[in-house]
Design a protein around this nucleic acid. Structure first.
Length: 547
RNA sequence: GGCCCGUUGGUCAAGUGGUCUAAGACUCCGGCCUCUCACGCCGGCUACAGGGGUUCGAAUCCCCUACGGGUCACCA
């Protein structure tokens, strides 16, 4: 009588030991964590995937360990051309660069290959080992049979699945298997579960604490009909061989942990620590639901790039979701590198956070306010180059000029926080470029007497001096106040409003409207300095005539 | 439906039996500062899902209910 594994795995010649020797124990300092991100190459970087990857990365970095990227391409149907590069490149934009495995420039590291489709032989060796030990068997059930069983179970209100009496092929003999194979029947390899429903399996999740569940009793598929492993089996083999110490993944995997733990046990492997992160949610009809790739554009990381959020801002926002202590850290260390933050898994929230655009905007404004004018220019121009060509040509026409705009009120302890995303830049800088400058309408000054406004503009145009220091400039505006009957101090006006036409604020508003076409802008002095005498006085005169 | 997990203001959250008449952040609304805006500062609105226990004492521990999420594939 032939051996079952010879019937099923005639192609497998290597032994588990030979494989294991290729994956020596890692030499890492005490406490170093080996983590990984294991995406499918679907060509779509989900914001939740980025989040998970970031947490994996941070933990590895914090502990002096290793972070690697492994491609889980065991389902060819979902694969997309260029999907791997899109994901690795996408992560690298956020500073998440793999120590091992896939980077945008290819694979590296000594524990590969890091792509499951290239590891077929490895999985088969261990599947064979399980079969040799009676822990796995071939199952020839057809789709129709599977459906019948499911229907029967449903009718009897039993749990669905292949276990106990429903595991029809548990007792198949090698001869019977050979016969079916000769008939051309296809088969999968199932685990011969050693679980007992009445026993409970306990494990400690690094984020959620103690979890306990009934043992797995399902004869889970480990090798599909095409000989490729299922996620479960690949996970166990890969993370064992690659030396992963902490598996950080989405919490949709929690319910599979009993299967995984059982496989580690049956294979004689030590199981890693698990950490299951809560998904990022979206508000809908008053409820919450997971951000969906299909329905929600904001689920894609590319959405934020297009909207003009700097990668840095998205990172920062995600960190605030990952750890509530992060905002305090950031306040205390505005310029520090994220790496200095003491990230801890156990402080992570266990329930899914609603994605909050308000908060992202706020975080982003703060993030941008900490950038230098040069950086703001570079990033804004990069964005514009791709999404707003008109703006790009204006910004890049005179780099120094453009940087000057972004420099206004930037290098001080309380920098302005006007910009949350690059798509706002066009509006922010509009009046600095004649091409975008909107001639002010008289409406802006509706609350003022037209004759007074004209007088203010004429007086100011007469005395404006491009060479003034800021103090001189301000003093000159006050002089205009004096000569035209406006109060040079707001307080003086408030004390006796009847003795003035208005105050310094009114005068500056009139001038601001003429020069910028708006009543609210950053510091007028610096704007005028950049604009230059001709344009300042020209705009003032033009506006005065229109009143 | 079975099994898991969760539930503190509109949102993110701190909180591990007394220091909780519950921190902080975002949003919103007032006010101050101020050449406008922004910044900053001050203040305000709004919360322990519900019910039972345990305890001198419960947001915190236990039980039940409700609600929300996840999972139950030859997808990951």
């Amino acid at each position: 009588m032939p051996n079952m594994s010879d019937v099923i795995f005639p192609d497998v010649t290597l032994t588990p030991d030979e494989i294991t020797q290729r994956y020596p124990q890692r030499c890492l300092p005490e406490g170093a964590q080996v983590t990984r991100f294991a995406p499918s190459p679907t060509g779509f970087l989900h914001i939740g995937g980025l989040f998970t990857a970031m947490i994996n990365y941070r933990l590895a970095k914090k502990t002096g360990g290793v972070f690697f990227i492994r491609i889980e391409d065991t389902d060819k149907k979902r694969e997309v051309e260029g999907g791997i590069e899109l994901i690795t490149k996408g992560l690298e934009d956020f500073g998440i660069i793999a120590d091992e495995g896939f980077t945008s420039t290819g694979q590296k590291g000594g524990y590969g290959p890091y792509q499951q489709s290239q590891r077929r032989d490895i999985y088969r060796v261990f599947a064979k080992k399980l079969m040799d030990e009676g822990k796995a068997y071939p199952c020839f059930m057809t789709e129709g049979e599977l459906e019948e069983i499911r229907a029967e179970q449903e009718k009897n209100k039993q749990n669905p699945g292949i276990y106990g009496q429903y595991a029809k092929y548990r007792g198949i003999t090698p001869d019977e298997a050979q016969k079916l194979i000769d008939e051309g029947r296809s088969f999968v390899v199932r685990l011969r579960s050693c679980g007992d429903e009445s026993r409970r399996i306990k494990f400690k999740d690094s984020i959620r604490g103690k979890i306990e569940m009934p043992e797995n009793i399902q004869d889970t598929v480990i090798l599909k009909a095409d000989g490729i492993p299922t996620y479960h089996f690949a996970h166990v083999i890969d993370d064992h061989l690659m030396g992963t110490t902490t598996v950080i993944r989405g919490d949709e995997w929690i319910s599979s942990v009993p299967i995984h733990l059982q496989m580690f046990y049956m294979l004689g492997f030590k199981a890693p620590n698990y950490a299951h992160v809560a998904p990022i949610m979206k508000e809908e009809n008053g409820g919450k639901r997971k951000l969906s790739k299909r329905k929600d554009p904001e689920a894609a990381v590319s959405f934020y790039r297009e909207a003009g959020y700097p990668m840095q801002s998205v990172s920062e926002y995600l960190m605030t979701i990952a750890s509530s202590a992060y905002e305090d850290f950031r306040r205390a260390n505005p310029r520090a590198d994220v790496g200095e933050f003491n990230f801890e898994l156990r402080k992570m929230s266990q329930s899914g956070a609603l994605f909050d655009l308000n908060k992202l905007n706020d975080v982003s404004k703060n993030t941008i306010s900490r950038m230098t004018a040069d950086t703001v220019y570079d990033l804004a121009a990069d964005w514009a180059k791709e999404y707003d060509a008109g703006l790009y040509s204006l910004l890049s026409r005179d780099e120094g000029y453009s940087k000057g705009i972004f420099a206004i009120d930037r290098d001080n302890p309380k920098p302005r926080k006007d910009i949350a995303k690059w798509s706002e830049v066009r509006d922010y800088v509009a009046f600095m470029f004649d091409e975008l400058f909107l001639r002010p309408s008289a409406e802006l000054l509706a609350k003022y007497d037209a004759a007074d406004a004209k007088a203010v503009l004429a007086a100011y145009a007469g005395v404006y001096d491009q060479n003034d220091s800021k103090d001189e400039w301000f003093e000159r505006m006050k002089t205009v106040c004096d000569t035209l009957g406006f109060a040079r101090e707001t307080k003086a006006y408030k004390q006796s409003p009847e003795s003035y036409k208005g105050h310094i604020g009114d005068v500056s508003t009139i001038i601001r409207a003429a020069v910028t076409g708006r009543t609210n802008t950053p510091d007028l002095y610096y704007i005028e300095q950049l604009l230059g005498y001709e344009r300042v006085v020209g705009r003032i005169k033009e506006f005065a005539e229109s009143l």
